[in-house]
Amino acid sequence: MSTINGKVWKFGDAIDTDIIIPARYLILPLDQMKHKAMEPLRPEFAAQVSKGDVIVAGKNFGCGSSREQAPAVLKELGIRAIVAVSFARIFFRNAINLGIPVIECEGASAKVEEGDDIEINLSSGEVRIPKRDLSFSSSKLPDFLLEIINDGGLIPHLTSKGKS
């Protein structure tokens, strides 16, 4: 699982959790809630996103409320990883706890375009757009967080540890 390939959805700076999933939908069951993801900004997103797609965004992705529903709806829709210049603290923790790779990458946001095929190597921290010969380095996640992601999130990580 150390290499991820997917198609890019591009977002800007400060995508807050009220954009990712507006407050009024938090109460819906997750399989209904997911259809509302990104609605205020890109109402077509939830219907058009495909399993394995990757989000590339600017600064402070996931700022605002602590709602874990934000990474949860993205995961439900099949988002495979999120690359951003920076992440808000709680979103970053929540995404890892749900097993979603979150990659802090300074350069990608400016150059990567919507629809690009992106390749992310989690072990080396390299982010590439092979077709356009672009390559960026990112801050590699520490091993203990990669382990949680590899196990599919904190709960499977803790319970599988518990069993072994």
Binding site: S66, P71, R93, N94, N97
Partner: peptide
């Protein structure tokens, strides 16, 4: 607290912070 504004309690010199549901459950 599983709410981002849990940081309010610093007003009386407590360390308090918001987390998501999984961290909260743990």
């Amino acid at each position: 607290g599983t709410d981002s504004h849990t940081c309010t309690y610093g007003g009386i010199g407590a360390f308090s912070t918001g987390v998501g549901s999984t961290d909260g459950a743990a």
